[in-house]
Write a protein that binds this DNA or RNA. Structure first.
Lengths: 261, 261
DNA sequence: CACTGGCCCGTACGCCCTACGGAACCAGCA
DNA sequence: TGCTGGTTCCGTAGGGCGTACGGGCCAGTG
């Protein structure tokens, strides 16, 4: 029903812009009126409200009451704009609270990241999420510090943080996707399954997929209950943190950090 | 440098098509020449080779030596076509091997899924990945069966499978993204960092982000070594499975399955 | 005052998806 | 044999999109 892609801008250009935009941005001549920050803000607002599909240079320009091509004075292209939007979004994260145990901290970080993705669902549709902008590096440092001093090797620290972030990302993606489907089809998640169920029941040979059938029903009724996605998120997160715990215990009980991972 | 979006087709239509396409597809009159399967195959080939960005109805039609609009006789639109491509891709997975312990089986499943994503990187760019086609349900059933009979509740089984799949998805995404960046910029991953490093060194106040700086260097040199992404993938996977192990141990040691998750 | 360089943007090109209506084709029947 | 009506195919056209290009505007300088 709609297109499907996504790339990022030229990495070198984006990187330059990312860090240069820190400057006061006070240029020489003319009255700016426009600025990188204003463009990024408008684009983010649009993407938040209508999704990355609706983000077009034309519409951003309209929102700013400006000609489309004017944007290109500040931003090389759409890809680079998205790179800027991503790093700018990371600025919302708190990177100062370093209290609590490593487990509490990872827990807090996971929830904060999840909230961020839900506030800016379009972030999950960008290819990069890896371009080292000023705010991303602050985020990275903050997250690493949560698992520092536990006896883990550097590479293990990185892996651990990636593990937690990966979990958050994948669950957030699921949440956002199902909300998106709900919006598109005008149907609630439950309504959708109530519609699809009879259809599927006619098509699927239940005896061929007994486990799927059994679990599917149980999951369906569970989701229907008061328990929200939040409970499931936290449950899975605890599993992930249990896995980290095993590693931490192993490292802190005598075995020195190995050479690699 | 390129656009960025992605939606899926009308769920109801996709669902119907998904299951109908199982039929012999032998229609009544006229010579078909074209068919849903042929279209899906051509589209998949194109997306595999050039990415989801390059997938357009025009190009698929060209590849089939057919007018663009002819495709619409068999497929309602591009979104639904992508839904079909996704389920068709899942057909590659082996869903018969049920040997080994739950841990061995999840390990095998994780690697198989990872391979699939790397073979079909465009799958990571689709929004749905959740539309219950014939092959997806076979996959789901197969994966659930790996954690069946361990004392886990149904919802816990679902969460566990999601957990592993989420991990695989997020690491595959990282791998694919960095390969994509490499292709686009014509630079190797190492080359890229060698280029960016001096630039970043000038911009970033290392003392502000001591942990990130230290870990970044270690990770960089580790990646540079013979150790491949595969090692890191397996390491993280073991952490995830450790977390599952904790849950399994808890459930098999007397505590009955709880009401929820 | 003339100039220059940054800002702004109208036009145009090439690509995309797809609604619509008509052409080509062929099985079966009269 | 000739017709007919459903099927398959596709040309045209309309509305988006990103962005290359070149020109107009104006503040401040020399």
């Amino acid at each position: 029903m709609a297109p499907q892609n996504r790339k990022s801008g030229d990495p070198a250009r984006s990187l330059a812009l990312l860090w240069r935009s820190q400057e006061p941005a006070s240029r020489r001549r003319g009255k700016p009126g426009l600025s990188v920050d204003r463009i990024v803000a408008a684009a983010t607002e649009l993407a938040d409200a209508e999704g990355l599909d609706a983000l077009s240079m034309r519409r951003v320009a309209e929102a700013l009451d400006v000609g489309t091509m004017s944007l290109y004075t500040y931003v090389p292209g759409k890809g680079e704009l998205i790179d800027l939007m991503v790093d700018s979004a990371y600025a919302d994260l708190d990177t100062s609270d370093r209290s609590g145990t490593w487990r509490e901290r990872l827990h807090r970080i996971a929830h904060a990241n999840r909230d961020l993705y839900i506030r800016h669902p379009w972030m999950l549709q960008t290819v990069t999420m890896r371009l080292l902008g000023p705010h991303l590096i602050a985020k990275y440092d903050h997250e690493l510090s949560a698992v520092d001093g536990l006896g883990l090797s550097e590479v293990e620290m990185d892996s651990t943080v990636s593990l937690v972030n990966g979990y958050v990302e994948s669950t957030a993606r699921q949440t956002v996707n199902s909300e998106g489907l709900a919006r598109d089809s005008g149907m609630d998640d439950q309504q959708w399954w109530k519609t699809a169920d009879p259809l599927l029941a006619r098509l699927i040979d239940d005896s061929r997929y007994p486990t799927a059938a059994r679990v599917g029903v149980a999951v369906g009724t569970a989701h229907q209950a008061v328990y929200e996605a939040d409970h499931e998120f936290t449950f899975g997160l605890e599993r992930v943190l249990d896995g980290v715990q095993v590693l931490v215990d192993a490292r802190s009980s005598g075995v020195g950090a190995p050479g690699h991972a």
